[in-house]
């Protein structure tokens, strides 16, 4: 965390010199924590979203589709989940992506691997994990998420669920598009706009999340969390997985809170399951997919991914306890 040393110095200066708060007092610690975390997270978000979107401009979904349409299962799943990581996800793009892939003849299971990885392993979640939990937890999250996306896609593919797609799919022989010529100037401008757009959307959630987190950090005793948050009982993992489902759009606000709970002793597997459920099982996404697939397919899809999340949660609670 040494690169954030200047931020810590700034936070200290603001807390103790400008606000003239008493050293070691609970209020001062909470304020200091809030200033430091907010600045750190916003620096990380701006830098990482910018670079990820720059890389992205070289591999738009249309290109990914072309690559995947020549691949079979397993290889296809491995690649699809990988491409899912670098593709941004918003509920508004779920349907065109899903149908565009199916129409190009990409198998349903491979398409699902992509659809699972895309929201679960997104740059905002990674930045928050990196900033709040450190690189080890971030890496565990990325690798587990990737495995869940690949394995769930393979299982869903094997289940032969194509008849549950409720849309007249027109197989298109040619889905290739001409390569757009973009200058570096255009790519940089796009990346800048995208970064600004994302930050504009999530900043209030982050401030509120860090604010409540700072308050818990300073004021709520660990014993209280341990007694009431039930972080380590057997039902904690399924409970947080269910709670995570409707929280998608608030991921940015929930993570700072979760990090404080972890710091106060909630088991890390439980934390991972919670974050994966928030990003990977999203209610708005299910509602929008309902337009093109039968409810049964959405339920099967959510169940398979849900089991993967539960497994990850229990596994890391066991391994890291």
């Amino acid at each position: 965390m040494s690169i954030f040393r200047p931020v810590q110095i700034f936070a200290d200066w603001l807390t103790y010199s400008i606000f003239a708060m008493q050293q070691k007092s609970l209020a001062a610690e909470a304020v200091n924590f809030f200033i430091f975390d907010t600045i750190k997270i916003f620096i990380l978000l701006s830098v990482i979203i910018f670079f990820v979107s720059l890389i992205r401009s070289f591999i738009p979904p249309e290109r990914i589709r072309k690559i995947l349409s020549h691949k079979y299962e397993i290889t296809g799943n491995l690649l699809a989940a990988f491409f899912g990581i670098i593709t941004p996800f918003c509920t508004c793009s779920a349907i065109p992506l899903f149908l565009g892939f199916i129409e190009a003849g990409i198998p349903l299971g491979v398409t699902f691997s992509f659809l699972i990885a895309s929201p679960m392993i997104n740059e905002v979640a990674i930045v928050l994990l990196l900033g709040l939990f450190g690189w080890k937890i971030s890496l565990i999250y990325i690798i587990s998420g990737y495995i869940i996306a690949v394995v769930s896609g393979v299982i869903l593919g094997k289940m032969k669920l194509e008849h549950l797609v409720e849309y007249m799919v027109t197989r298109r022989a040619d889905t290739s598009l001409g390569v757009m010529k973009l200058t570096w100037k255009q790519r940089i401008r796009s990346a800048k706009n995208y970064t600004a757009e994302i930050l504009k959307k999530i900043w209030p959630y982050i401030l509120i999340g860090i604010g409540i987190g700072a308050w818990i950090h300073g004021y709520v005793p660990t014993e209280f969390i341990m007694r009431y948050a039930a972080g380590n009982s057997w039902y904690a993992v399924p409970l947080v997985t269910l709670i995570g489902i409707p929280l998608y759009s608030n991921a940015a606000g929930v993570l700072p809170l979760v990090s404080v709970l972890t710091e106060k002793g909630v088991a890390i597997g439980t934390t991972l399951a919670f974050m994966m459920a928030i990003t990977g099982l999203s209610l708005p996404e299910f509602l929008i997919l309902k337009k093109v697939m039968k409810a049964k397919l959405i339920i099967i899809f959510a169940t398979v991914v849900g089991i993967g999340i539960l497994f990850t949660g229990y596994l890391f609670n066991y391994l890291l306890s």
Binding site: P60, E62, R65, S93, P96, D174, L177, G178
Partner: peptide, 18 residues
């Protein structure tokens, strides 16, 4: 065949997407 938006089509040719 477009999946990223917005896209621009001039006289039935896709000239820009995403």
């Amino acid at each position: 065949s477009v999946m990223s938006f917005p896209a621009l089509v001039i006289d039935e040719n896709v000239v820009l997407y995403g």
